[in-house]
Simulated assay, not measured.
Amino acid sequence: MSRPQPPRLVPPPDLYGRPRPDRYLQALDWLASKYVPLFTGKDRYGTRPRPPETHPQELTVVSREPVADDVVSLRLATGDRRLLPRWQPGAHLDLILPSGRRRQYSLCGDPADRYAYRIAVRLLPDGQGGSAEVHRELTAGSTVGIRGPRNAFPFAGDRKVLLLAGGIGLTPVLPMAREAAWRGLDWHLVHTGRSRASLPFAGEVARLAARHPGRVTVLTDDEHGMPSATDLLARAGEGTAVYCCGPVPMLDAVQAAFARSEAKALHFERFSAAPIVDGKPFTLRLRDGRELLVPADRTALEVLRADDPGTPYSCQQGFCGVCKLRVLSGTVDHRDRKLSAQQRADGEMLVCVSRAAEGECLELDV
């Protein structure tokens, strides 16, 4: 006995009972699919498409405001307000300034804001000119080249966290504090500086303290005296991870005192070159045959800049790669955190941190 076949489905008639699709409605649907997106930027269901994420080479200064004595905050965005690449607390942006100088500044805004990056720059009168150029040239409406974001100071989100910020060192630490609060971590932020007027984003820090009582401490030299590293680390209980960013004396003191604390880990970011460890004098030979002596207490970059102030550099810590040069002969003592094994084998060197053995001569392709 054969199984009965199911009845064949027949499309319903159109509005007038005709056994075919309604041509008038088909035409309206086609017109809507073409012209609604064209004139409204939306699809026919009213959904506006998300602008694509881009990796821009240039951003515009959309706003600029003073946030402390000699500190300006800049908001940077694309000209057409496109989505920017994501970033995490601790990340920084490379700025290529109009002069060609490249400088790195920590992102200090909200990672959830995908349409703008925020940085803050303190004017350094005795610096190399980068901060002065930012203060002088980067006004609202001006454009600046960028690279990044990149992160050499990542926030791991440990269960217990002590955040230490000295002055402008708050810039990478402030997003970490917000992240720690959002995650429900056991955290504490200490912001130190000469005076309250010198502390950037004091209003934001105050609001953070009001929302999270007992988790934010502000210490200024003129009110409380200069805190010792031991005093700062006393807030790190057993198993605490410490994140520290600030001037070199603060970082050196915290590193020296860390072993005596109960903290389990120390993460830090420097504003300037790390101190030279176990340096020995060596020589650089340039293409024109001249030889430059690198003393034990100076870097190859410092010596090259003394000979040619236009020598490019940025982080001075061995991770950005701006100062990379090719070595034609000689053995390099690599101390960077950037080059791959293949790049090193090919003769590349970051002259901001890498050195040579005592008495060695490195012949550079420069």
Rank of each mutant, 00 (worst) to 15 (best):
S228T: 15
D221M: 00
G130W: 02
S329H: 15
K338T: 02
A177Q: 00
G237Y: 04
R8Q: 13
G127V: 12
A236F: 04
P49M: 05
V322C: 06
H334G: 10
G330A: 10
D69A: 14
G130E: 06
S195M: 01
A306L: 10
S73K: 00
R81M: 06
A32T: 09
H224N: 13
P37K: 01
T283F: 00
D307R: 12
S106G: 02
A345Y: 07
G246F: 12
Q128H: 11
L364Y: 11
A341R: 09
E269Y: 00
D333A: 10
L362Q: 13
L219W: 09
Q255D: 14
T40D: 12
R335P: 14
V121T: 04
R8H: 07
G237M: 08
R103S: 15
G100N: 11
L328M: 13
T283N: 01
T331E: 14
T220S: 11
P85W: 01
L83Y: 04
L97S: 13
D14M: 04
P172W: 02
G239C: 07
R337Y: 04
L339A: 11
L124M: 15
R81D: 14
R260A: 15
R159C: 05
D333V: 09
D288L: 00
V71M: 09
R207M: 09
G145D: 09
K42Y: 05
L83F: 08
R136H: 12
V144C: 14
L293R: 12
E262A: 14
L164D: 10
R183Y: 00
Q343I: 05
C361P: 06
A209L: 04
Y117G: 11
D222E: 11
P6N: 00
T143L: 03
H55T: 12
P52Y: 02
A77H: 04
R298H: 13
F201N: 01
A300F: 06
L15R: 05
D94N: 05
L31Y: 13
V62Q: 14
A236P: 08
R8P: 14
E269P: 02
C352A: 10
V144M: 12
P6F: 04
R326G: 04
S272Q: 12
I146R: 02
P309N: 03
H191D: 00
V353I: 07
S329T: 15
A357E: 15
G359R: 08
R298F: 13
A229R: 00
